[in-house]
């Protein structure tokens, strides 16, 4: 599973990082530091929760075929 993030639209809610700082690292200003994440096996559920927690709706889960 992969995550795609529209990084330029991040406004620093940091709700994704509140779910998992490991999957959703922030920069020093508290904005998302990455625009894509490879989700390690076993963390799919947390990845989905992190994406759903974004009030801007800019985090997308890309399920692999």
């Amino acid at each position: 599973m992969k995550i795609r993030i529209e990084k330029a639209s991040c406004v620093g809610n940091a709700r994704c990082a509140a779910v998992s700082e490991e999957l959703f690292p922030l920069n020093d200003d508290g904005y998302i530091a990455v625009d894509a994440v490879d989700v390690p096996p076993g963390m799919e559920q947390i990845a989905r929760r992190g994406a759903r927690a974004c009030p801007e709706r800019i985090i997308f889960v890309v399920e692999e075929e």
Partner: peptide, 11 residues
């Protein structure tokens, strides 16, 4: 906004 961002960051 930039100068204020860090002092109000989660960290």
């Amino acid at each position: 906004r930039l100068p204020l961002q860090r002092v109000f960051s989660p960290k």
